[in-house]
Nucleic acid binder design. Structure first.
Length: 334
DNA sequence: AAGTCCCGCAACCGCCGATTC
DNA sequence: TGAATCGGCGGTTGCGGGACT
């Protein structure tokens, strides 16, 4: 552990302590926040008579002192959920932590880097030496991103730190021209959720740079690995369309209002394996996405200069899935 | 018993976006 | 409008302690 030490970077921080927190400091911080709430962290540090910077106080509170923290080792169920969420969200530890009550992003990040990463690496080594299995599609894998650098209209991008890919439609689209992109994703063989979902997602509005238009928070949203959260409060303006695709064939049409429309169809086939778990199936699906053309016409309503589309088919939603405890019967969300 | 290696974890660092002035 | 500040986040560091030799 770090020894407490003086910070000497600048005049102000000369007085600030760094390193491990003493029990006395913990007590001061805890008492202050209990009595006064959080507020501005630099004020917290000052008013609680702590020789710490605000950031340090914030970190200490979030990662250690918060009363709702759940200490102790990760359960196998939590571990599996983390792996699953990581396949959906990548290294967005804070978002993963938000779905694991009582766990912090730092805790999950450490756990991932120290334990799961190695485990998955070992699994990967053993599988690649025994069979010609598909590549593990980890969106955070730079090696994999290299492999996908130039695939049928999707290129690797650094614009979005969360994602590996975004569609670029520069060849035929004017930047000033409104464009609608329709993607239909059908996943065969997936369990149907209670609300009739079969992971079928439709809709989406993007400009020529790949940005998703606001859909009143009711649009859909594709994530790193082509997993498709949808609908309520997930897809928002500015979200990137970041499918994980092996290839894409795009159909561009122009409607009567001179709006261009890019139509893709993504079909993911499930590989049957009696020994596989639910997550294995998900990963198998994600690893075997194929894309084909399929024009789709839906009832669309113009809103200003933008199209708006009503979702007419089943929606698969990460949040909803998280709410559906039956899918994670092993996780204690209480 | 002593030395070395390895691992887990707490905390720091640096960057970025949002907000304030 | 631009600079300053703040909060949030992911990446990285390095210490403590257990395992191993």
């Amino acid at each position: 552990m770090r020894k407490p030490e003086q910070c000497g970077k600048n005049n102000n921080s000369n007085k600030l302590r760094k390193g491990l927190w003493s029990p006395e400091e913990d007590e001061k911080l805890m008492n202050y926040i209990i009595n006064n709430g959080q507020g501005c962290w630099s004020d917290v540090a000052r008013n609680a008579s702590l020789q710490r910077c605000g950031k340090s106080c914030r970190l200490r509170w979030i990662n250690y002192l918060r009363p709702d923290l759940r200490r102790g080792a990760f359960s196998p169920q939590e571990e599996e959920l983390i792996i699953h969420l990581h396949s959906l969200l990548g290294n967005r530890w804070s978002q993963i932590a938000a779905r694991l009550p009582g766990r912090t992003d730092n805790e999950i990040k450490n756990f991932w880097n120290s334990t799961i990463k190695k485990r998955l690496k070992n699994i990967n080594i053993s599988t690649t030496t025994t069979s010609a299995s598909p590549k593990v599609c980890n969106p955070q894998s730079h090696e994999l991103n290299k492999d996908h650098n130039n695939m049928g209209g999707f290129i690797s991008t650094q614009h979005n730190q969360h994602a590996g890919f975004m569609p670029i439609f520069t060849s035929s689209l004017s930047s000033s021209m409104q464009t609608t992109i329709v993607n239909t994703i059908n996943i065969e063989g997936l369990p149907v959720l209670d609300h009739g979902l079969n992971m079928q997602v439709d809709g989406g509005y993007f400009n020529s740079t790949g940005q998703c238009f606001d859909d009143n928070n009711k649009g859909f949203y594709l994530e790193n690995d082509g997993i498709f959260g949808s609908v309520n409060n997930i897809g928002i303006e500015g979200d990137m369309f970041v499918p994980h695709l092996e290839s894409v064939n795009t159909t561009i049409t122009t409607d009567q209002n001179n709006h261009q429309r890019v139509v893709d169809n993504i079909t993911c086939k499930r590989e049957t394996n009696n020994n596989s778990t639910y997550f294995d199936d998900i990963n198998s699906i994600l690893n075997n996405c194929n894309v084909s053309n399929n024009k789709k016409s839906e009832n669309r309503v113009g809103v200003g200069n933008l199209f708006q589309e009503e979702l007419t088919i089943g929606e698969w939603d990460l949040e909803e899935l998280m709410k559906d405890v039956s899918y994670f019967p092993f996780v204690d969300f209480s």
